[in-house]
Computed example of a mutant assay.
Amino acid sequence: MRVVFAGTPDFAVPCLEACRAAGAEVVAVYTQPDRPAGRGRKLAASPVKTAALAAGIPVEQPESFKAESDRDRLASYAPDLMVVVAYGLILPRKVLAIPRLGCWNVHASLLPRWRGAAPIQRAILAGDEVSGVDLMQMEAGLDTGPVLVERRTAIEANDTGGTLHDRLSALGADALAEGLRRTMAGETLTPRIQAEGGVEYAHKLDKAEARLDFQLAAIALERKVRAFNPWPVAEADVAGERLRIWSARALDGVSSSAEPGQVIAATREGIDIACAEGVLRLTSIQRPGGRPIGAADYLNARPELKQAVS
């Protein structure tokens, strides 16, 4: 089977490797154009491009498929199938029609819940107990196609955006490998049409969302801290200082009559802050220009905070 693979970030790399391991011939890799990155803002290749070049696979980086020449270039690879994983471009109908078997997409949610750009973080923010990965036959609509293979996983109480990302990336590769093996063995996969109800859209993350508002419930803020680790990382004003919050937890059964945002306790275990509902304990924080540290180290640098609430 001749496969064209389209993907960009780290999440997609295991799926590229799964295509090759399943015995498919990956004839080309499509990925986003090199973008400025790092403090020097030098152009950097995507993780998928790096993996493709290491494997000796031709790489294509069109800005879009609006030009007929870009679609002709894709068609010249004569793909049986195009596999799309976090590519970053919406494929027009003319592109979807090029491969003999159409296009498959590996999507990090249990569709139709969390269609769109940020399904992993949105699932944590919403307090979902289960997530997963769907291998989907692509249609013109956004993540609307029928599901071919599905994998599920529980969202654990300590999962972050990063840990769930890594687990779903591996599950996505597993689901894709199954779909490829079965198809290459001559089986026709049975599609499951998505339900009409339960549709949620996972809008792209915005850095402004990372600000913690202590007028909200502590459990909602805990989920935000977890969801936005490792990006964009939650931020909060704590006793007059802007901090990045890497880990925090809502204290079970603890409440406070203090004003939301007020530090009510500061110990080696964490810095407890009153919320509109409940108390949030900050356990790993980062000062401006510093690195993430535990509450004990932070209080060593700010002993007045410990004294103020003693």
Rank of each mutant, 00 (worst) to 15 (best):
R2V: 05
V4R: 00
F5R: 00
P9Q: 02
P14A: 11
L16R: 05
A22F: 01
A22C: 10
A22W: 06
A24M: 03
V26Y: 11
V27I: 08
V27P: 03
A28M: 10
T31V: 03
R35G: 03
A37M: 12
R41V: 03
A51F: 06
A54P: 03
G56H: 12
P58A: 11
E60R: 15
Q61H: 00
D70G: 00
R71D: 02
A78L: 15
L81F: 08
M82E: 00
V85E: 08
A86H: 07
G88F: 08
G102I: 11
C103R: 02
C103P: 03
H107K: 08
L110E: 15
R115C: 03
A117V: 12
R122D: 09
A126T: 02
G132M: 09
V133S: 09
M136L: 05
A140R: 12
A140P: 01
G141M: 09
L142D: 12
D143T: 04
T153S: 12
N158A: 14
D159Y: 05
H165W: 13
D166W: 00
L168C: 06
L168E: 07
A170F: 00
L171A: 07
L171T: 02
G172I: 11
D174K: 05
L176P: 04
L180A: 07
R182K: 09
M184R: 04
A185S: 13
K204F: 02
A208K: 14
A208H: 09
A210I: 11
R211L: 14
L212K: 02
L216R: 14
R223T: 04
P230M: 04
W231S: 11
V233R: 13
A234C: 02
A236K: 09
A236F: 09
A236W: 04
G240T: 11
R242L: 13
R242P: 01
L243Y: 08
A250M: 02
G253C: 08
G253L: 04
V254G: 00
S256N: 03
S257V: 13
A258D: 13
A274F: 10
A276F: 04
G278W: 07
R281A: 14
R287H: 04
P288N: 12
A301L: 12
P303C: 05
Q307K: 12
